[in-house]
Design a protein around this nucleic acid. Sequence first.
DNA 1: TCCGTTGCTACAATTATCGTAGCGATACGC
DNA 2: GCGTATCGCTACGATAATTGTAGCAACGGA
Lengths: 108, 108
Amino acid sequence: MAKQAGTTTRSVRGSRTGRPIMVLLDLLGRRWSLRILWELRGEPLTSRALRTACDEASPTVLQARLTELREAGFVELGDGGGYGLTTLGRELCETFMPLHRFAERWKR
Amino acid sequence: MAKQAGTTTRSVRGSRTGRPIMVLLDLLGRRWSLRILWELRGEPLTSRALRTACDEASPTVLQARLTELREAGFVELGDGGGYGLTTLGRELCETFMPLHRFAERWKR
DNA sequence: TCCGTTGCTACAATTATCGTAGCGATACGC
DNA sequence: GCGTATCGCTACGATAATTGTAGCAACGGA
């Protein structure tokens, strides 16, 4: 990967139209993105606590996702360490809350 | 990939806990999953129309996602051809509708 | 100083996705 | 029948993303 730093280097990813909803669906469609937001829905977590919460996912991807989510303004790194949702990120997370009930109803 | 047919063959994917919400977040976190549901939100689309709607995404992945989404009960293949959302899939899609407004508000 | 934890990175191996091409089946007009 | 067009779907090599393991520098207690 093009080791994005600062500016968003998009290689083959979707959302070539630039429409906000497409960019958002593309970002959230990356692996662990939704899961990270979900796990941060409560209190902030340290990078390692987050990794534990995410089934010991590879730190490489977690860091990549955290960087992307931070650039998107959904996640922030607190002063005393630990990742948490921004106000914007919390609003986004609220959008997904109905998913919980849906999921329970879904798997019979 | 293990060419899943009938039963769900999960290789390295997340959601090892089996909790419905995790399975759902995992499924929706695959590439083009969210986008497919989004594009099918209106009328049913043929596989090729769907491909066009999804920025000419590779048919390989689209078919894989469609199979998964069908097994999940969100998408169905109509009698006269064309993919559409099931009742369940439509409910799921409704959950994402607030995302549209959020996305517009998001990108300044 | 020695531990322990923080956020974060390197690197090779494994998967997933891409892009192009093409299949069998079906439905048309001729 | 014959060609043509579409349908859903698949093969396959090339490329990009993800995994798993190991480890870094920085900071804080003991």
